[in-house]
Simulated scan of single mutants.
Amino acid sequence: MVSQGKLIVITGPSGVGKGTLVRQLLQRHHELRLSVSITTRSPRPGEVEGKDYYFVDRKRFEQMVQNGELLEWAEFAGNYYGTPLLPVKQRIEAGESILLEIELVGARQIRERFPQAQQVFIRPPSMLELERRLRSRGQDSEEAIARRLKRSIEEINAANEFDFQLVNDDLDDAIKQLENVLFAVV
């Protein structure tokens, strides 16, 4: 009999470096699998359908919500994001450890549906640094940056809801801390 895998939730404000940390983890730990989210936003340059996201229109996404096909979902910055339920469930039952890189609303839904999930909150070193990172990406309008910064305050205030918190100030240190949390590395 195959031992059950685990669900690992990584969240934090937009621009905090969740994606970079997750990519590093996946490169270093081939036993981890990333759950590919579904979104209604347009692909960013270089994003690949089925690898970075599944891109769907709002009508299809809303059908998936109604049909109970999503483990979690949220609307963020004017777009829907969600995690398909069936592939995650099948992979965990097959003994795989699945990483979810999601927003606060989705993380709260996961806590309700999968209370055994390991939940990690990534904090920015400061709000000034978070703003600098958002601006340096060069992909959001001033309005979108302002919206993301306002939302980040609510998210940071919820950090204590999570099993673990770490500050992404130095990438190497943050990866080591994350590995300690996930794998009990000493």
Rank of each mutant, 00 (worst) to 15 (best):
V2D: 06
G5H: 01
G5F: 01
G5N: 03
L7S: 04
V9C: 03
S14E: 04
V22A: 08
V22I: 11
R23V: 09
Q24M: 09
L26K: 09
E31C: 01
S35N: 09
S37C: 08
P45A: 15
V48M: 10
G50E: 05
Y53K: 04
Y54I: 08
F61Y: 08
E62M: 11
E72A: 15
W73S: 05
A74P: 03
E75T: 07
F76W: 07
G78F: 02
G78H: 07
Q90V: 11
E93L: 13
E93Q: 13
A94N: 09
L100D: 05
E103C: 08
E103H: 08
V105R: 06
A107P: 02
R108A: 01
F114Q: 11
Q118S: 15
F121E: 00
S126K: 05
R135Y: 03
D140R: 07
S141E: 10
E142F: 09
E142K: 09
S152D: 07
I156V: 12
I156M: 07
A159T: 07
N160I: 00
E161K: 02
E161N: 05
L166G: 02
D169L: 05
D170I: 14
K176D: 10
Q177S: 10
L178K: 00
L178D: 01
L178V: 04
N180Y: 13
N180V: 10
V185W: 14
